[in-house]
Computed example of a mutant assay.
Amino acid sequence: MPLSLYLVGLSHKTAPLAVRERAALDPLVALPAALRRLGVGVVLSTCNRTEIYGVGSLEAARALLLERGVGPAHLYEKRGVEALRHLFRVAAGLDSLVVGEAQILGQVREALFLSRKHGATEGLLEKAFQSALALGKRARSETAIGQGAVSVAYAALDLALAVYGDLSGLKVAVLGAGEMAELFLTHLKAQGVGEVLVVNRTPQKALALAERVGGRAFGLEALKEVLKEADLVVASAAAPHYLIHPEDLPRRRKPLFLIDIALPRNIHPEVARLPHAYLYNLDDLERVVQKNLEARKGEIPKVEALIEKAVGDYLEWYAGHRVRTAIEEVRLRMRRWVEAEMPEADPLTLHKEAGRRAHPLILNLKRQAIRRLEGPPCPAACPLLALK
């Protein structure tokens, strides 16, 4: 019997943001309703994809997405081994917008948890998602697919760590109070920085961000004073002109590192000429990001090898699951045969001899079961298929 797993979904590869928004299933209302309608299924719904995994017929899952305003051209459907392989690629980060991104593994885990919570899982799905989670962990621990900064905020953090090694005790000034500033400060707080100084044109916004990250707030008029205190400056303010000029920086006994992640730039490039100032901008950070992305892409073949091994392992489990009754009958028959031939043998000897005789028959049963599956894997992926 073919592997009855299916997948229906859409992602950043097949649908624009407006379509993905319509397909998204919120975890409080839409997702529980969808699971009740499907009966059995796991829904993976993120900002970049909505995918429904299930067993049996996929018609209900397809209809559910079409009813939410998703055109057929935006959907992809996979069955059997290809659905399983796709799930493994997603969990490993190979199907993400940014290859190797870490968040997707937690999202796969949450999707399985919610399905369990609403009683919508069964054996095949449970095993498939547990295998996907184990694979995702292996991909990140045994390869470099998730290493290196691949966002500007992370690249800026990596740069700060490269410069200082340890950020604890440092005073960090952030110019701007928008999303990028908050993201960078979140990363910094996780590294144990000593003090955060938030500078913004609108003092109320500076205060709101400072309260969220446990820092001090300043208006733009205090920028020169803040620059006297800071060890590290990160600029991300939305401004049409430079906010920091060479004359704004006092001569210092210790160097000042400045990272300008704003566009247009916040820091005049001439600042880099000062003997006590070290300035990095978006071009510098994007070169780091691109280098790290290329390094991640070089790890893809290693991850794909892990995926094929995981597919083979799952199919071996599935084959044993499908022929479990037949396997038990073989074991029982061999036991009776050995008992009749060796009436004086002790129980351990009987058990070993019965197992030895049953082993090739059990392998043959599993091999036949795997060959009935859709799209059987290559012999390297599933050792049972390579047996003669």
Rank of each mutant, 00 (worst) to 15 (best):
G148I: 11
G298Q: 14
G100E: 11
G355I: 01
L159Q: 05
V42F: 08
L274T: 01
K78M: 15
G192Q: 05
Q290Y: 06
L363H: 07
P27Y: 14
R116M: 00
T186A: 13
P203R: 15
R253Y: 06
P269A: 04
N200S: 15
A156K: 01
L105G: 01
S141L: 00
V172A: 05
S115W: 11
L157Q: 03
A319M: 12
V152P: 03
A235T: 11
Y154E: 13
H74T: 02
L170R: 09
P27I: 10
P347I: 06
L384G: 13
L227H: 10
R273V: 02
N364E: 14
L183H: 12
C378F: 11
P32S: 07
A345D: 14
N200Q: 09
Y280K: 00
R68T: 06
L363I: 00
A295G: 13
R251Q: 13
Y164H: 15
Y6K: 00
E110W: 00
L170A: 04
Y318P: 03
A208F: 02
A239W: 07
G320V: 04
A160I: 07
R331M: 05
E286R: 13
R296M: 10
A181K: 01
L114G: 01
A102H: 07
A305N: 07
E328T: 08
D158F: 14
G56S: 05
M342N: 01
T50I: 09
A190F: 15
R37K: 10
D231A: 09
L258D: 00
L7H: 06
E329V: 05
R335T: 12
R36L: 11
D95V: 11
I307H: 03
A272L: 02
T186Q: 14
